[in-house]
Design a protein around this nucleic acid. Structure first.
Lengths: 223, 223
DNA sequence: ACAATAGTGTCTCTCAGACAGTATCGT
DNA sequence: ACGATACTGTCTGAGAGACACTATTGT
């Protein structure tokens, strides 16, 4: 009845118009040289969320990232780790375009990889991490609809077009810019307009917004 | 780095027009004589879901219940159990009107209690079980909207009115019987009509339905 | 006959999607 | 001037809510 407890992280970001997740190449057995989700053991006096935060800071090399972290699910099949009985609490993280990660202590290599390159090849991933990735992806896609989660992929201040880009990349579809604009600006508490504009995407200057304090979108953003 | 791992269960059913959950009164310290969610330690070679099923069968005294079980969340704050470091994986269960439970092995008493009696008094519950109950309630209410979960509260065959009653009890509001009827019978894959009718609720005989194979309701049932 | 519940039809209002049209920048 | 993007207005069709109306039972 003594279990090891780990946290594993599905860290999503958007790079070059693609949804990417953070992976490490394992430097030690088991599954040596295969890709895995970043993670590690929970310490004796450490909460689960604290452990997730610590691992995230470790792997990205940055300390105070503007990152949304939430619990995804827990995986504990006997035999999922051949060394011992391990229960893994998976966390889901979202951030704006993040820097290339530093290689961690026991990882040979850490890199952003597009999820549409990894998800179709579950056998390239260590342990049950393909399942965790798949669950994380499904959760992320669903939460875009009814929560302001998409703003977690954006910088502090962002335009409506940048927000729309998040939806388009994560869902893999195109959205009508005009209807999208009406929908998100009309959703109470979703977006707070600033008094600044930007032309960084070309064309007419676009108003910059910040995330509002809404936790749920009503009505949802239809897919 | 050796953790105890338990499963805790939030088991919902509907009794006497009220949403009830299963509680046990603790017969041993800590939190002796307080109410707790049923649960127990995961065994050495046992999967998490298997452990939840086993505990559920234990506590209800029945073996092959028509019960929906899904993982809720995992709770692992240091100090949540004063005896040792314990990580608890909570599961959410739903069943039709279930029999009064047998007292389990190490529980002094097991009973159905209406959640609106328990939720407002978090201090009457052991450990962090008030939080778990609250999370389970929120999840259940949300899932009624967009999943066929409500059918898990009904018997194998049920009427539209019985299904509506589930929504009304869990959400604590009244719904228009006519619009509800149109909505659920028009939701593809939600309900499969049988060729039988019942008058058990009085009035004109109502057609009996079974759950369909839909896993998601589109459009959702509005609250 | 009457009460009670099941189920259908209809109206109205709102909202989502399609898309025309206008505004304001860089080049 | 022209291309590009931002934003607004308008039309239409689908669906939600309100509620009248009909159907079929038990008493």
């Amino acid at each position: 009845m003594a279990f090891g407890v780990t946290v594993d992280l599905v860290v999503f970001t958007i790079r070059d118009d693609r949804l990417c997740a953070l992976f490490v190449r394992r430097g030690i057995p088991p599954h040596r040289d295969r890709w895995a989700l970043p993670g590690g053991f929970v310490l004796e006096e450490e909460g689960l969320l604290d452990a997730a935060r610590r691992e995230l800071a470790d792997e990205t090399g940055l300390d105070d990232l503007p990152i949304h972290l939430e619990q995804l699910a827990t995986y504990g099949d006997p035999g999922r780790d051949p060394r011992m009985r391990v229960v893994s609490v998976a966390y889901l993280a979202f951030g704006p375009e993040l820097p290339e990660p530093e290689a961690g202590t026991d990882a040979a290599e850490a890199r952003w990889r597009p999820v549409d390159e990894m998800a179709p090849h579950p056998d390239q991933l260590a342990f049950d991490h393909a399942q965790i990735l798949s669950d994380g992806l499904e959760r992320a896609r669903a939460k875009l609809e009814y929560s302001p989660l998409a703003t977690a992929f954006c910088a502090e201040e962002f335009t409506v077009a940048e927000l729309r880009h998040v939806y388009e990349v994560v869902w893999g579809i195109e959205l009508d810019p005009r209807n999208f604009h009406r929908k998100v600006t009309g959703s109470p508490g979703f977006l707070v307009p600033t008094d600044r504009r930007t032309t960084r995407n070309g064309g007419r200057p676009a108003l910059l917004y910040r995330r509002g304090d809404a936790t749920v979108l009503n009505p949802p953003i239809a897919r």
